[in-house]
Every structure is written in structure tokens, then in C-alpha cells.
């Protein structure tokens, strides 16, 4: 296996949880809900996926448990912000703190246990293609899902009537409501989807990336996913580009260090963030395009009776 191939393999593993969590958050934000609880939902997904895998012996049960945990946890956010109309920013932050705490408690009896890794599935024929085969077609189920989810989101948002309604809710909930779209229901579903994706991202952490459970193992990846949504200017495929760019820079800097090129490691460690900022600047020079994509009702509460 060549060095380029090895680097790319590491990049895919590092980028997948970011892409998944960001894709889910993108849908929630497109419906006008800003959920800062991604980190909390992700870590809940990670702990539940790990626990369910240990108890059942099957990582696939674990994946389902991770998705369910993320979705259930996001339901709490939905209830507080959509039904009780609590402040979205404050509730999201609380969700993150709560998730980190609760996951630590739930996971206490699973600390130090040996994880069961979600094994790769080789796709017949395609996995035999040189270079591309081992990279893209000999991966675990969560990677395939991540690409399918992004493609699905793109299709849903821009090619279906329901997707159009969801975007309408995010852009102007008042108008959507006047047209007869159930704003609260749409947002609940979007938040649930976001939670499920974050939970799946968490499952990737504790079943594929590092098959183990330790407290706080998401280590800030939920926040990076949130930044990626803005980075992608709310376009699904750009989330993939952003996630992989971030992953590529993070992995290359480790290789650069191991290679001994003599650039200070603190600088190299900051490169992924520097790259993000540079791209953001490049994107934002076209202000009109940015405004078109930004959900205009993002973060604003909606009370139907008003």
C-alpha cells in the first residue's frame, strides 16, 4: 500500500463523522433551527452504540442504538425549543453539556472494555479496481451510509416538494405557515433527522474510528461539524468537500511531523482551522450567493397562533 493511499484511508475515517454530523445539522438549519447540541448528541450516540454493541455482540445493533440515541436526545431539544419556544442557542449549549455528563454516567461500566470494530464490507468487482477499490469500496457500512445520506439530502432538498417546503419553513416560517405548511411538524422532523445523523457520527467514533469508550471521546468534533455547515454555505455536497478538506489537512500535518520537515507542530496543528478560515473568506466574497443559501429564519422562534 502506497503512502498516498494510506493517508487517504486515514482521511476518510477522520472525515466521516464530521460529514455525517454536519449533514444532519444542515437539514435542521435549512428548516430554520440552530441546534448547538451536536456535540452532545454525538457523544450520546457514541456511548449508546458502544454499550449496545457490548451487550448484543453485534456492532450493527450498536449502529442502530447510536442513531436512536441521537434522535431521542434531539427530541428533548425539539420539545424545549419548538413546543416550549425556549431560546435555541441556550438550549443547544445545555444539550451539549447534558450529553457530555449523561454519557459519562451511562458509560462508566463500559470503560476499559475492548471494543468490537465494525468490519469493512468489500463491494464485489468495484473493490478490485486498483487504487480506488481499496479506498472507496472496501469500507465500513457507516462510510457508505454517509455518502448515501448526503446524496439523499441533496435530492430531497432540491428535487422534492417536501424539501421545498422544508426550505420555505427555514426561509420564512410566517409565509410557509400562511400557505398551510405545518412549521412545527417540519422542524421536529428536521431536528430528529439531525439528531439521528449526529448519533450515527457518534457510533462511527466508538465502533470504527477508535473502537472503545472513553469519556469526552468526541473531543470537539461536534463543534467542527457545526462550523462545517456554515463553511458549506448550507449546500450538502460542500459539506463533504469541507469535511474531507479538514480531514486531509489534519492527517497531512501529522505525516509532515513524522516526516520531520521541521515546521513547528503548533503551527501545523492549527492548519485545519486556518484552511477553514481561508475558504470561508473565499466563499464570502460573493455576498449574494451566501445570502441566497442562508436560511433567513435561522434561530428565530415560531409561535403559530400569533
Amino acid at each position: 500500500m502506497g503512502i498516498v493511499e494510506a493517508i487517504l484511508l486515514s482521511v476518510i475515517t477522520a472525515a466521516t463523522p464530521l460529514v455525517l454530523a454536519a449533514a444532519g445539522e444542515l437539514v435542521a438549519e435549512r428548516s430554520g433551527v440552530l441546534n448547538l447540541g451536536v456535540e452532545g448528541m454525538m457523544i450520546m450516540g457514541a456511548v449508546c452504540a458502544f454499550a449496545a454493541t457490548q451487550l448484543s455482540g453485534s456492532p450493527y445493533i450498536g449502529v442502530l442504538a447510536g442513531i436512536a440515541a441521537g434522535a431521542l436526545f434531539s427530541l428533548l431539544f425539539g420539545f424545549l425549543t419548538l413546543t416550549l419556544v425556549a431560546n435555541q442557542v441556550a438550549t443547544g449549549l445545555a444539550l451539549t453539556l447534558l450529553g457530555l455528563g449523561v454519557s459519562g454516567m451511562l458509560g462508566e461500566s463500559f470503560l476499559g472494555m475492548q471494543g468490537i470494530k465494525l468490519q469493512p464490507i468489500a463491494i464485489p468487482l468495484l473493490s478490485q479496481v486498483p487504487f480506488v477499490g481499496p479506498l472507496l469500496f472496501r469500507q465500513d457500512a457507516i462510510f457508505y451510509l454517509s455518502i448515501a445520506i448526503v446524496a439523499g439530502i441533496h435530492w430531497f432538498l432540491f428535487r422534492t416538494r417536501s424539501g421545498l417546503k422544508l426550505r420555505a419553513v427555514g426561509d420564512s416560517h410566517g409565509s410557509a405557515h400562511a400557505l398551510g405548511v405545518d412549521v412545527i411538524r417540519t422542524r421536529y422532523l428536521a431536528v430528529l433527522f439531525g439528531g439521528a445523523c449526529a448519533g450515527l457520527a457518534g457510533a462511527q467514533l466508538s465502533l470504527v474510528y477508535t473502537p472503545q469508550w472513553v469519556e469526552n471521546m468526541s473531543a470537539g468534533r461536534g463543534w467542527i461539524a457545526l462550523a462545517l455547515v456554515v463553511f458549506a454555505s448550507w449546500r450538502p455536497w460542500r459539506v463533504v468537500a469541507g469535511g474531507y478538506l479538514f480531514g486531509a489537512v489534519s492527517i497531512s500535518q501529522l505525516h509532515a511531523q513524522a516526516f520531520g520537515i521541521g515546521i513547528p507542530s503548533q503551527f501545523l496543528s492549527s492548519l485545519p482551522y486556518v484552511a477553514t478560515i481561508v475558504v470561508l473568506i473565499l466563499i464570502s466574497h460573493n455576498r449574494r450567493m451566501t445570502l441566497i443559501n442562508t436560511p433567513a429564519s435561522l434561530g428565530k422562534p415560531f409561535v403559530p397562533d400569533r
Binding site: I7, S10, Q212, A219
Partner: peptide
């Protein structure tokens, strides 16, 4: 940061 530590380990082994 389990993920980053694992990435560092992979980078070193790949080299």
C-alpha cells in the same frame, strides 16, 4: 483525543 491519537499512530506506522 482518541481519534487524533489514533491518526498520529497511523501516520507513524504508514511512515
Amino acid at each position: 483525543d482518541p481519534g487524533k491519537e489514533a491518526d498520529a499512530a497511523k501516520a507513524l506506522i504508514d511512515q
